[in-house]
Nucleic acid binder design. Structure first.
Length: 270
DNA sequence: CACCAGGACGTTT
DNA sequence: AAACGTCATGGT
């Protein structure tokens, strides 16, 4: 158990921003997260966060995962002050981060996300982990389940996925798992690619179109210029930016602002 | 019972 | 190349 003082960091917003489906609230200001095969618990008291790991594990894994080296305030301050909407959105999302999540998990999670709502996406992802993921024990002896590998999913039969209630997405995931397992699409090559090359490569996968590819680029490969446009963002763009969103002004990090906007659309009223 | 949810895909205009 | 129907599932 370690404590760190981290300014401009809000676990509640990160948990509810719809980018990670394996982080869940445990109680007042407490959260649990499974990533990279490990289980982490966190508790936030103002700017001080407790993490259930050693300092060595924190600097080796979680600093990077939570993107602590990026200066978000700098991007927030660069927002056009005459832009009423964006100014309100970044204010609302104060403490947001773009996580650096695992590529395979994000690919599958966002295939599941299509025509689906966030609570049910969480259920589907958790179900996949419980059914097919490796079982481990956390620091207090409780069981948790790692996200299943592409190899494991590729070896299953399509009918095996029925228990996860994935609907028509099961076939997408199965086909995608086989493409990754047999090397048709290489995860390690994707990691080294530029944004647009990675996006094109990702769209070779079954069930991955432009929107899901952009999400994978943003939430796993950390191409923060990726700007996924879903139904909420599309509605937002037509109502607040009928003349077009100023992508040129925010070139290189527009995706971060997209995430503020997405959170604002979902939780702005709370 | 109708409608919707962080879309993708094959087919028809 | 743009519009259209379809694809399952669970929630409201």
């Amino acid at each position: 158990m370690i404590k760190r003082k981290i300014p401009a960091f809000d676990l509640h917003k990160i948990c509810n921003s719809g980018q990670c489906f394996r982080m869940k609230p445990l109680g007042e200001n407490r959260y649990g997260l499974t990533a990279f095969g490990e289980y982490l618990e966190m508790e936030q008291e103002g700017e001080v966060i407790s993490f259930s790991c050693t300092g060595e594990e924190f600097s080796r894994r979680w600093e990077d995962y939570f993107d602590l080296y990026t200066d978000y305030e700098k991007m927030v301050h660069a927002v056009d002050q005459e832009d009423i909407y964006l100014t309100a959105a970044v204010r609302c999302g104060q403490g947001m981060r773009i996580l650096r999540q695992e590529l395979w998990e994000v690919i599958v999670s966002f295939i599941i996300s299509q025509q689906n709502n966030i609570p049910r996406i969480r259920k589907c992802v958790e179900s996949l982990c419980i059914q097919f993921g490796e079982e481990k024990e956390d620091f207090r002896g409780e069981k948790y389940y790692v996200f299943p590998t592409a190899d494991v999913l590729a070896r299953k039969n399509l009918e095996d996925f029925a228990i996860c209630s994935l609907g028509y997405r099961a076939k997408y995931i199965w086909n995608t798992a086989k493409m990754v397992a047999d090397g048709t699409v290489s995860l390690s090559k994707l990691t080294g690619m530029e944004y647009e090359a990675a996006r094109t490569e990702l769209m070779k996968l079954s069930g991955v179109g432009i929107k899901v590819a952009e999400c994978i680029c943003l939430f796993a490969l950390h191409h923060v210029d990726a700007f996924p446009i879903d139904t909420h963002i599309r509605d937002m763009l037509t109502s607040h930016y009928p003349e077009g969103f100023p992508f040129e002004r925010y070139q290189g990090y527009a995706g971060v602002l997209q995430q503020y906007a997405f959170y604002y659309e979902l939780c702005g009223a709370e």
